[in-house]
């Protein structure tokens, strides 16, 4: 049960996207995520979809793996789509009952919302597919480093992130082991209604927390033994060096971004589509 959860699911492959400087990937992904909230046309979403598919291809990530990243939001997408189809309220109703109505606009709007959520998940998923947790931590540390000026402990935050990522599989294993031990003693963890199940988790969580604190104590000794905080000038094993690849990526991304922004500001394809569909149905 716990084995299915893979956090920051890295997909190992040899590709230019994998080799990109994590800092560039992080910043570009930030633009990607912010920009999508301004996109409201199908042309824009099409551009987004093209971007995601192109990146998936370049990164040599199988389409199945990309689609699997959507499994977590499937229920949410369906729920939001249904709500939007029936309660959007705008346009000429094709069908209506009580407070609900369905129109061409509401269907198209629901479709856009679904697309937005899916694209919002797939982009960052691509980032974690192509970037190791270590590279991500390094990238975040490097991007946050200006905060050192205001005495923000950037290095400590990076080490905390690194240890947290490192401990996830270990704690998962331990949870599995505790659950099995409780089951062996007759605890029923997987049966009964939701309240029963939540209650049954208490004897799992208590030993898990006690164990985590015990680990923390040994980890503290280990960190001291390895001279954590010894030198104010901590050096690095991995040095992030942006290359030509990153310049190309930024240029391509800028061109794509300009197109998306223009599609938001200038064109009104959507009205054309509405009109065409309305005409087709009405005629």
């Amino acid at each position: 049960m716990m084995k299915d959860v893979s956090f920051g699911q890295y997909y190992p492959a040899e590709s230019g996207v994998h080799r990109m400087d994590p800092r560039f990937k992080l910043v570009l992904m930030l633009f990607y995520v912010v920009l999508i909230f301004f996109v409201d046309t199908f042309v824009g979403y099409l551009a987004y979809l093209a971007f995601v598919l192109l990146m998936t291809g370049l990164a040599k990530v199988p389409l199945r793996t990309l689609l699997r990243s959507l499994s977590g939001v499937g229920v949410m997408v369906i729920f939001i789509s249904i709500i939007n189809v029936f309660f959007y309220g705008g346009g000429e109703p094709l069908w209506s009952w009580w407070v609900m109505s369905v129109s061409v606009e509401s269907i198209l709007h629901a479709l856009k919302m679904a697309l937005r959520i899916m694209l919002l998940v797939m982009g960052p998923a691509l980032l974690t597919f192509t970037t190791t947790p270590t590279a991500l931590t390094d990238g975040i540390e490097s991007l946050l480093s200006p905060l050192k000026l205001i005495k923000f402990p950037v290095r400590d935050v990076a080490v905390i992130m690194s240890i947290a990522l490192r401990m996830i599989p270990t704690l998962m294993e331990e949870t599995d082991r505790i659950m099995m031990a409780q089951k062996a003693r007759g605890a029923s963890i997987d049966t009964g209604n939701i309240f029963r199940r939540i209650k049954a988790l208490v004897p799992v969580l208590v030993p898990l927390f006690v164990g985590a604190f015990r680990r923390a104590e040994e980890l503290a000794f280990a960190l001291d033994s390895r001279c954590y905080n010894a030198s104010p000038k901590r050096t690095r094993y991995r040095i992030l060096k942006p290359g030509a690849r990153d310049a190309v990526a930024v240029l391509a991304f800028a061109a794509w971004g300009t197109f998306v922004i223009l599609s938001i500001v200038l064109f009104d394809f959507d009205t054309m589509i509405y009109n065409a569909i309305s005409a087709a149905i009405g005629g």
Binding site: S162, L165, R215, R226, R234
Partner: peptide
């Protein structure tokens, strides 16, 4: 398990010397 700080072995081995500058 309680002594490792990185999710990649070489990064973990590098942790001590990094701290020493």
């Amino acid at each position: 398990d309680n002594q490792m700080v990185a999710s990649v072995i070489e990064d973990d081995v590098a942790f001590g010397p990094e701290n020493l500058g």
